[in-house]
Design a protein around this nucleic acid. Structure first.
Lengths: 213, 213, 213, 213
DNA sequence: CATGAATGAGCATTCATTCAT
DNA sequence: TATGAATGAATGCTCATTCAT
């Protein structure tokens, strides 16, 4: 009832309007597949199933629509909940996290938000920054916090947890992310990811696990 | 007279024509700074100091010119000679290589070929592939060959040298490449690079150096 | 209930509907400030405090609305009652009339109906004609009628009263109207108007007053 | 030969290029007939017999093209040489000048630059100002200078020659300009002009000619 | 009757490409 | 070969108008 009422009152600017979502969905597909410049508002309108004019009812211009897409991506990926439960053993935690992270980064099916945002970062630096800070840096920070706790618990010996977090995440990308982003290889299979993450974990623990004397 | 004769015989496709080089130089600057779509043939012509028409004498179209630019970049970066002399100790080799690699990757001053090629890879997959294979994969292979030799020499214990090579290179990027490419940070300073590469080296050796028993 | 009944019976075309007036008021402001093409139906709707759709309930289209505005202006300016009382002396009558006429013509504060109608006259000749005939020509006629009476009374010697009326009115505009309409000068001050009207009156009387022998 | 050489060297920006003239001619026709907003660049291109793109080779944008048209009109009308030879008698001078002025102002055949510039003056005040100052005010000044000379010569008694000049010019417009600009009457015939100018002259001389004692 | 979301034709402008010289 | 004027298709965006509620 309340929901119905809200719907009845919904205005164009409504952040949650169905049309707005519809447009965002269509636009995301086009932007992620063709890049900012490659995407035309006409194509986006067609993909979203609305008229070109409607695009401009919901978004000020192409930039605004693109920023909204990235913002949505930021929100969605920021919500990605990695399991940093201290009760679990370190190996499992690293493996699960690494796997989930790579799957997020190398999402199959064309449209990679990472590539699309990287591509435009030179001309829209605030968009690039925002994406980095709220998606990548955020994940690094969360993981670093976990590592910190492990250090405190006496399981790991890490000087710079931020760097260590970043190192692990980059190691997990080894042989996977670059070929994927350059279109030199398809999205990695779960098996490939598992192998690489496993190796990254071993490397990480070899360097940072406190060795029993 | 001789020169004239040569000119008369010279073919447009002449890979080494001075005009061709001149165009490539201008085009590289524009493409790398503005991206494929951001660059206009007019701007390129101005940057190269030739007329727009001349561009089409040497290159079939914008795509062709861009591909030639990437090809040139590939050639140039492929020439980047890293010092994998087995006579040097492992630490120095890793440190020098890591440093040189990051400096190549995070070249300051805007025009990053890595970003430019990444950006277009979805729409021009062959270009992305070619760049990856002949620049990044090539470097991985050379480094892997070095590691192989070290394994044979009994200095390192590595199962998959390709993966290990990639791991070290990714580790060296930790906290540097992503912020740079997303415009969330300027090109890293030599000191920053040194610190990160040092840490990567330690990690790598902790994992792969044969421990004295 | 009664009100509802009236509403139910009320016709859209109702010339005196309050909504209609409200729209006309908003539209006049926008049209007169921005011109026919510069005015958008959205802006008009906002200025009138109604929805865009409502505009089309009361008026067929933008042209129709504009015509109604001009018609209203015509009606209003046609009502402008100049004091042509024969009991007053000629000097006072001319001075008062000239002043009032210039003030009407050079209304300060942007929105000049004269300019707006002039501007569109080439594309909407009937609108221009209607405005001229019912505002300007009407005033000329009324003034000419006055002059006629003065001629009959033996105060003035005028051959063509229509022309004389027009001459006086144009003389009053001297140095005022053209700079104003071309935006080369702000709306004239009362003092400026007084000076110019005074001079016009002198000129007029020098030409048309019967000289005492 | 010299001319040919110049043609060979002619560049796009050349103020006298034939294409530029061609565009200006087409654009003038369209702008003057439809007004600034009514004219579309497509229509202008068609009228000029060039492609839409070519318009932008010679002019920065629609505003720039319009301003160039007005500027050209200003130059042309500024060149209008009225005969203010002091050797001629005053009556002839006034009559000739008045006639020429009205013919300029009420040029038959649709496109009136006066109307077109008036129409846009609210939104492009500099254009309106420039037109007024360099066409209308210029003519007033020239005529005022003539009147001054006549005053000095003892033929006329005028206090404010600028105002008097303006008065005469406005008087000549009586019953002609307003109906013309509002499309309530076609361009006046020479006979009509002659009659009105004659009457204006009489009025002017009645007011300002020094009467023999 | 009143609304405002939706439309699609139309606009100014850009730019890769062609071609006569 | 080199030029640069010319093109026209395509783009982002606006706005008068419609229509379901």
């Amino acid at each position: 009832m309340v929901a119905q009422h809200q719907t009845a009152l919904s205005v164009v600017g409504d952040e949650d309007s169905a049309k707005r979502r519809q447009i965002l969905d269509g636009a995301r597909a086009v932007f992620m597949n063709l890049g900012f410049d490659g995407a035309s508002m006409g194509e986006i309108a067609r993909a979203a199933g609305v008229s070109k004019g409607t695009l401009y009812v919901y978004f000020a211009d192409k930039n605004g629509l693109f920023e909204a897409i990235v913002e949505q991506e930021v929100l969605e990926q920021g919500k990605a909940a990695f399991n940093f439960d201290l009760a679990r053993d370190v190996e499992t935690t690293l493996k699960d996290f690494g796997t989930a992270y790579i799957q997020l980064l190398c999402r199959p099916g064309g449209g990679s938000s990472t590539r699309t945002v990287m591509a435009i970062a030179e001309r829209m630096p605030e968009v690039g920054q925002r994406f980095y800070n709220n998606v990548i840096a955020l994940t690094i920070n969360r993981f670093a916090t976990y590592l910190d706790a492990r250090v405190t618990a006496g399981d790991l010996a890490i000087d710079d947890c931020q760097l260590a977090a970043s190192q692990f995440m980059m190691c997990c990308q080894a042989s996977l992310f670059m070929p994927f982003i350059f279109q030199a290889a398809p999205a990695p299979s779960p098996a490939e990811i598992a192998g690489v993450v496993d190796s990254a974990m071993n490397m990480f623990l070899a360097a940072y696990r406190i060795k029993p004397t």
